[in-house]
Nucleic acid binder design. Sequence first.
DNA 1: CAGAAATAGGATATAATTGTCCTAATTAAT
DNA 2: ATTAATTAGGACAATTATATCCTATTTCTG
Lengths: 142, 142
Amino acid sequence: MFSKACEYGIKAAIYITQNSLQNNRVSLKEIAAEIDSPVAFTAKILQDLARNQVVTSIKGARGGFEIHNPGELKLSQIVNAIDSDDVYKGCGLGLVKCDELNPCPIHDKFKIVREKLKEMLENTSLKELALKLDDGTTVLKI
Amino acid sequence: MFSKACEYGIKAAIYITQNSLQNNRVSLKEIAAEIDSPVAFTAKILQDLARNQVVTSIKGARGGFEIHNPGELKLSQIVNAIDSDDVYKGCGLGLVKCDELNPCPIHDKFKIVREKLKEMLENTSLKELALKLDDGTTVLKI
DNA sequence: CAGAAATAGGATATAATTGTCCTAATTAAT
DNA sequence: ATTAATTAGGACAATTATATCCTATTTCTG
């Protein structure tokens, strides 16, 4: 569904949020350890998210990553930054010009799934996901 | 969402169905032309679908592909054969052990999407898709 | 039976994704 | 100021997905 990069990106963002809510800045190393991802690859993804204003990066000693508006930041912004919105907006069969007027055979049925996904990504904030980690009802690893 | 191979596979299967419903066997070349896919790559995918009993292949001159039970064949069987059921059964964040007891942060919300997708794939037959092509309300190309 | 038309399948090529390594730049702390 | 800790980013390596090419095999047709 999502690329590996996007999965890492979402997990990283949730973990950063969890810490930013406690005014705790976290380092790349810590993030990668916590979400069980390759350090250097995660670095690239975080650079990307920083360029897209999803996370704020602070360079230098005691630097790291923060997220300032986790209540307003939605999963869709991360997916968009890393994968593109194709996963919840594009045609299920990859047709470039598939739309209501020229639908592919699975258009109508797939639309329902896509809408659900879109709705879910656009209405889920990083903050609510981080809080569910905090209370121990969910996990980021294994 | 689906791999390119899977998209080609679905399109090919729908086109074969459309022809099998008229007792018309179709060749690889014709299929690839009709769904706008690379011929040799499509051949591999059809081999795969044949191994998985989705399509029947007939070798030799006047050979080609057929589908015998399009009313019973569901999209899920194609997706399963080519991609695997991960797309509609696996964890949204790629966690191997994500489940009701040990859910990832997006588990509950993602589950809804996944179920919709599963339902859609398991309840959509090749026959109904082919009929929608026949009556001109849908298209396979562009 | 010979030849042509088709699928099967192995080998290889290309592109995209994932992952690693090294150096540069930045900043806090001493 | 120097050093240590940290992110940025370029270059490269490995893996997987996509695509091509060639030969073998099968089967219909004449």
